[in-house]
Write a protein that binds this DNA or RNA. Structure first.
Lengths: 281, 281
DNA sequence: AAGAAAAATTAATCCAGGTTAATTTTTTAA
DNA sequence: TTAAAAAATTAACCTGGATTAATTTTTCTT
């Protein structure tokens, strides 16, 4: 049966230890890349392809605040983010900006229904980032069906994340929305070992949070302030620290639970993070 | 380059004429199926596979209000909806229900990241429906890379639709949300010829609209009432009629525009529907 | 280190849509 | 055909978050 548990999985496996604020140089081979066990990279490395040589992967370095591409651009490349943080946004005619999601290390970037049609959103690097080019030719995938399936699973994964945000925004209030978003990002980084206990590097502005969740900056600010006063959560100098995981967890609600593996409700509390090895095959 | 303009396209090509309230019998071969030029079916029929014989496709008939599967169910099949209307919903712990989207004829149903994991939502038929089983074995796709790519493109298509709903709900008011939803469904049905001028069969309850858009039934009712009074739109006896397309179009906003082909802003007004043949290859 | 720009913060006011609770209409089942 | 259940409708009232507009703090430039 078609099941790809070890391919294209964002949420269901642990990271490979602590690499907080990792910066291992912009050039590098796949064999030393911390993302090699994740998502698309994994299937790329597992494939029998000789057409695409992971040892000759082309890197692209971008600095923070630089756009990778803008909505409407044609013929963009397909990338995996090696390190950094990329945010996907779209500006509507009336000047409102929708933030769709953050792309974190190991995740695919740039795939859309019409790969060579105009980009449906803009991609901006929020941190200095390194991207690896992914082959885009049909021929390549034609001889690598596992890769094509991995693409499908990756898209399904993104779709699920978007759906969970949709449910979150549609049915929950400001505190719940922010709790969900913070926990979702925290877990996604933690799976890659990019946390330091309860802290993560957090380049999103309050405006970004608002544009993701459909809240004004003013209200995001009020809510974050309340969280800080209550000792739930604090953000300072681009570092987010979860002070009361359980409160956030209960605010995030059941929608969040389908994104995290069983038994990882509070992985740090339970002393689990870093104590288990990533299941590599 | 990897571009699949004629595969897995929901939004960018026209239907093949009028088949309003089509009901051509539950058993049928692909060669006479009106969906054979769409999305996944198209690539299935174009593939060189001998493992999956489109002439021996297995149909499943379900009656309206019957669940195909529930959230949490294991090992569900993969289907294409041949005729009818299926809605995807998820109930959260606190009893709120999120409606994710409607699955319309020709669309794929049941694909998710973990195909054999628990279903992340329930699927309920809103009309009497007929579904065709789609092969689910890895082996099948391994010898049919175009099919696997078609899956990826189909998922990207669903993802885009979900993202547009997300943007719509996050940044727009009740009238705008409803206008967007109505137009989106109208266009999606029209692409398949399932409209009758400005009317479509519409099995959604006001509660369904509310649970899709994050509005209460009371407010959906108020808004629909206002639309009727203003001569914009009316729903009666499960039939939705667009009375003032242009008003709806301007309410739906720019988000909607990326879902419809250029020049189709008001296809009926322009006399275009039915006058062009679907581009079959 | 100083000045400028960006981001965060705070307060006051307001309203779109929620909540609650009845009533009426439509659909379904017997 | 009729009773019961489901869905739609309407009204009255209320609140979470929007809006607007300053002010303060932080970050970037030079």
């Amino acid at each position: 049966m078609l099941d790809l548990p070890f391919i294209a999985v964002s949420y269901c496996y642990r990271g490979i230890g602590h690499m907080y604020f990792r910066s291992n140089g912009s050039k590098g081979l796949c064999c030393t890349c911390p993302n090699r066990y994740f998502q698309f990279c994994k299937s790329l490395l597992n494939s029998s392809s000789t057409e695409f040589d992971p040892h000759a992967v082309k890197n692209l370095a971008v600095t923070a605040k630089q756009y990778l591409y803008h909505q409407g651009d044609l013929n963009n490349e397909l990338f995996v983010l090696r390190e950094g943080w990329v945010m996907l946004t779209r500006l509507s005619e009336d000047g409102k900006r929708q933030v769709f999601r953050s792309v974190l290390p190991g995740e695919l970037l740039g795939f859309q229904q019409h790969l060579n049609g105009p980009a449906i959103y803009s991609a901006i690097a929020l941190l200095d980032s390194v991207l690896c080019k992914v082959p885009k030719s049909v021929e390549h995938y034609s001889t690598q069906p596992e890769l094509a399936l991995s693409l499908a699973a990756t898209e399904a994964c993104d779709k699920m994340l978007t759906e969970m945000y949709l449910g979150n925004i549609t049915h929950r209030n400001a505190r719940e929305r922010i709790a969900f978003m913070v926990l979702e990002l925290f877990h996604r980084l933690m799976l890659r070992g990019l946390n330091n206990e309860y802290s993560i590097q957090f380049p999103l502005k309050q405006e970004d949070i608002g544009d993701t969740l459909g809240l004004t900056t003013v209200h995001v600010n009020r809510t974050l302030h309340a969280f800080r006063d209550e000792g739930v959560l604090q953000i300072q100098r681009h570092e987010l620290t979860i002070l009361d995981y359980d409160s956030l967890y209960s605010l995030a609600g059941s929608t969040f639970k389908i994104l995290v593996p069983e038994g990882l409700e509070n992985p740090i509390e339970a002393g689990r993070v870093g104590s288990q090895v990533f299941r590599s095959s």
